[in-house]
């Protein structure tokens, strides 16, 4: 694969060859897996729901209409109404925005911070590496949901703080991943070559190391979105995340606890939404892993 010519202008060619080919092949592999495609469809469905759903279901998110409390699922209210007479379907649709944005934003934040720390640790090595790696070790020494709860208990409850907490707990995962990638790439011929011809550190990082770490980050990122959504819902369920009247799925579940018997639909649908989205990201993450990086297969 790495038929690297020491010519500068050969560089672009090599890069194209290194990326375009594998990506297309990965897509072909990905398509072959039914589970992965199913996952992707679920995700696209929820993304569309989050983007366009609120335009259709404008009404009834937080609007209370007492006469229609506890309406079971019907033609008028597809998924029924809750204890305030709010339409559960529109709350779930609006809730998809919350869950997906928390999932994506927190993972993007952890990828950025994690990559930064991982690159520094891997590229510069020595004591920088030791310190950063130790910090990662320590953070990973806590069960993740517990660390999130601790952070929220310090910052105070709320959706933003839940997002921050989830972003923080995921940092070491990406940090470690990038660090190991950097370490393995660092010694590659073409990096040594680039260094030899006097390329700047920053340029090497951005034009070589980062693109080469993309695949595992995408895989890990997709799976991390799944856990982030799950953790946000857990915090909402514990009353440490989203606050009333936000239609967050975990919070909706917590509110349904009192009506398990009289109105089980208030519990079933929010939970199902969480499960499906998480399942979607898990399936797609697995599929991506098999497609992009067969070596990572466990």
């Amino acid at each position: 694969m790495s038929e690297l010519t020491p010519k500068m202008d050969g560089n672009i060619e090599v890069k194209l060859e290194k990326t375009a080919g594998p990506w297309r092949e990965a897509w072909r592999n990905f398509r072959k897996s039914k589970a992965a495609v199913a996952g992707m469809i679920i995700i696209i469905f929820f993304i569309l729901l989050a983007l366009f759903g609120p335009l259709i279901a404008k009404e009834g998110v937080n609007e209370q209409f007492a006469p229609d409390r506890f309406h079971p699922p019907s033609a008028e209210y597809w998924l029924g109404t809750d204890d305030f007479g709010r339409d559960i379907l529109s709350r779930i649709i609006h809730g998809s925005r919350i869950s997906l944005s928390v999932g994506f934003l927190s993972v993007i934040a952890s990828v950025i911070v994690g990559s930064f720390l991982g690159i520094i640790a891997g590229y510069y090595g020595r004591w920088t590496d030791t310190i950063i790696s130790r910090i990662f070790d320590i953070m990973l020494a806590f069960p993740s949901i517990l660390l999130a709860i601790a952070i929220v208990s310090v910052l105070g409850p709320g959706l933003e703080n839940a997002l921050i907490a989830i972003a923080i707990i995921n940092v070491p995962n990406f940090g470690r991943l990038i660090r190991s990638k950097v370490l393995s790439i660092k010694e590659d011929e073409y990096i040594t070559a680039a260094k030899a011809i006097g390329m700047k550190d920053a340029r090497i990082l951005f034009s070589h190391i980062l693109p080469n770490s993309m695949a595992p980050v995408i895989v890990q990122g997709t799976l991390a979105v799944a856990t982030a959504i799950l953790e946000a819902a857990a915090l909402g369920f514990l009353g440490l995340g989203a606050e009333a009247p936000q239609p967050e799925w975990g919070k909706m579940l917590a509110d349904s606890k009192a009506y398990l018997q009289s109105a089980p639909w208030t519990m079933i649908f929010p939970g199902l939404s969480i499960m499906l989205t998480v399942l979607g990201f898990n399936l797609m993450g697995d599929g991506l892993r098999d497609a992009l990086d067969p070596k990572m297969k466990s």
Partner: peptide
């Protein structure tokens, strides 16, 4: 197993309560 991995544990708990304890 796939569904299990994606299961919000608190939802599963509520479902269990609903079916086995309440109904």
């Amino acid at each position: 197993a796939l569904v299990g991995v994606s299961m919000p544990i608190f939802w599963l708990g509520l479902l269990g309560q609903w079916v086995f304890a309440i109904e």
